[in-house]
Structures are given as C-alpha cells and as structure tokens.
Amino acid sequence: MARRTVEVTPVDRDDLRDVTGLWLAARVDSGSSREAATRLVADGRLGWALRRPGVNVFVARLDGEAVGYAITTENPFGLSPQAELAIEQLWVAPAARRHGVAKSLIAAVLSAAERSGCELVVSNVPQASRDANRFFARLGFSSVIVRRVVSTSQLRRKLAPESCETGNELLRRRRSLRSRALPAASRPF
C-alpha cells in the first residue's frame, strides 16, 4: 500500500482558517471545553497571537486535507547563548497519526530554523505524554530542564505571611472549636 502524501506549508497570516479549526480540535482533545476554546477564537486572541512578530505557523495536509499544525517562535534569549526556534505547539489529528505528519511538520520547522540562523530547536513536551516524549527522543531531542507550573492562587497561599493561618492551622482550629461545641449541642433544652 502506498504511503499517503503529506504536504506542509507555511500559513499566510491573513488566512488562518485551517489552523483555527485544528487548534480548536487540539484544545478539545487536550480536555478543554469547545465553548472556552471557541471564545478564545471569537474574541480574536488566537489570531492576535498567531500574527505576532517572530511567530511562524505551519499546516500539514494529508491528501489535501488539513490534519496537523506546528506553531514556532524565534527565541533569541532562551536557555543557551545560541539563537533558538521554539516549537510552541505541535498537534496532529488522531486519525492522521502514524502517517508521517508530525515528522513532516518537524522537517518544516528545521528548515525555518536554518533559514533564521537558529542553531537549536527546542520544544516543551508534557511529562505525562509518553508517546510525544518518545517521538521527540527518537528525533534527538534531549531533556534539558524540568519546567514546573503552579496556579497563581496556589502560589499566593504558599507565599502568605506566617501571620496568616495555614491550611493545617485552620483545620486544627476548626476541629478544636467543633469539639468544644459538641457537648453543648448535645444537651437537652
């Protein structure tokens, strides 16, 4: 059986329709609600982000149908003194996986990096995504850093001054108050 044809092209900044549809599918695939993703498109945030200077977008077509995309940014101030091209997002529709689409997208990214004079290509890969980590490792990407993420509200709680009650102190105090209130509550009127 002949391998299906994969074609990767840079996306014109004025025509982001294919990427928008794929981006919505990727957001839903990663667990976001369709409504939340649609709002980001409707209010123009996705289009604005993709039109920023230094952002490149590539779309992959399998037999003429858009099935994947890659978004890169030029990152001259990354982890190393050499100029870097960062793969911000790479996604392939589930039905089109294992047909060479992601590899074709990476080849387009490599060409863009070479044209820009970037000596490194970097990508943040989710730690829990075993398949993605294996894919990038097979292409020679190595682990350089561990990127840790925290919500702002959780970080605020952790940085709270010592005068504020911590979760354990608050729980202890509530249990103490509850234990004092129980005997009084059990008395008949």
Rank of each mutant, 00 (worst) to 15 (best):
V19G: 05
L16P: 11
A108T: 05
E162Q: 14
T73W: 07
S151W: 07
A70N: 01
A49Y: 15
A128N: 08
R175Y: 02
V101R: 04
V146R: 15
G68A: 07
S143V: 06
Q127E: 15
Q82A: 12
S111D: 13
E35D: 13
S111E: 12
L155W: 13
P53L: 13
D14A: 06
S32Q: 13
K158W: 14
G31E: 03
G117L: 04
N124L: 07
D29F: 11
G167M: 11
M1Y: 02
V125N: 11
R138G: 12
K103V: 04
G21F: 05
L171T: 14
F135M: 07
V109S: 01
L46W: 02
D63A: 14
H99Q: 08
A102E: 06
F77Q: 14
P53S: 09
G68V: 03
R157V: 02
A93H: 14
L155R: 05
A160C: 00
W23M: 12
K158D: 02
A86F: 08
Q82P: 00
L159F: 15
R97S: 03
S104G: 13
R147Y: 03
S176E: 08
S153E: 14
T20S: 08
E35I: 04
A37G: 06
C164Q: 12
D18Y: 11
K103Y: 08
L139W: 03
Q89R: 11
L110Y: 04
S116R: 08
R138F: 06
V146P: 01
A108N: 11
K158Q: 15
T38Q: 13
R27C: 09
S33I: 06
E119F: 06
N133R: 07
G78C: 09
M1L: 07
P81M: 01
L177Y: 12
V101E: 00
F77G: 10
D43M: 09
T38I: 13
F77S: 01
P81I: 09
W23F: 07
R115P: 03
D15H: 10
S111Q: 09
